[in-house]
């Protein structure tokens, strides 16, 4: 099919969306991700029976937290598709990409980059001292 989808998206493969923990999602945003979306099997089609329902519940939980801390729950989304549905996969990617473009960068991105820079500088100073 060789369908294209936005290059801004980094795919992390997991055996099932049920494997995605609430902490994985939170840490992604904490590290500066502008958006996160989970693509699971269609509801009722989970090989592990309820993995995608577990993921859906976690997404709902984290969306509330993201809203509460000012990051915005709309940056997190759960999608479902059939594993052979490439066009749908590309459509979801386009949809999420457009949503994040509209939302703008993660509000803490600047602070995270600054923190990383300070840490790198400190490591370099420590390395030079050794």
């Amino acid at each position: 099919m060789r369908l294209g989808y936005p290059t801004s998206i980094k795919i992390i493969r997991v055996p099932c969306t049920g494997k995605v923990d609430a902490l994985h999602i939170m840490r992604s945003f904490e590290k500066g991700a502008d958006g996160v979306y989970l693509v699971g099997c269609r509801e009722g089609d989970c090989h592990f029976e309820r993995g995608n329902f577990r993921a859906k519940a976690r997404v709902e939980q984290i969306r509330k937290i993201l809203d509460a801390v000012g990051i915005g729950g709309h940056r997190l989304q759960m999608y479902n598709l059939s594993s052979s549905d490439g066009p749908m996969f590309a459509r979801f990617a386009e949809e999420m990409h457009a949503r994040i473009l509209e939302a703008g960068p993660n509000p803490i991105r600047g602070a995270v980059i600054k923190q990383k820079k300070v840490q790198t500088d400190q490591n370099q100073i420590a390395g030079a001292a050794l």
Partner: peptide, 19 residues
């Protein structure tokens, strides 16, 4: 332990956003 991680992460994001 997991909820400690979630709450700490949420607090970090909140305070970072507040500058």
């Amino acid at each position: 332990k997991k909820e400690v991680g979630l709450l700490a992460s949420a607090l970090r994001m909140h305070f970072l956003q507040q500058g």
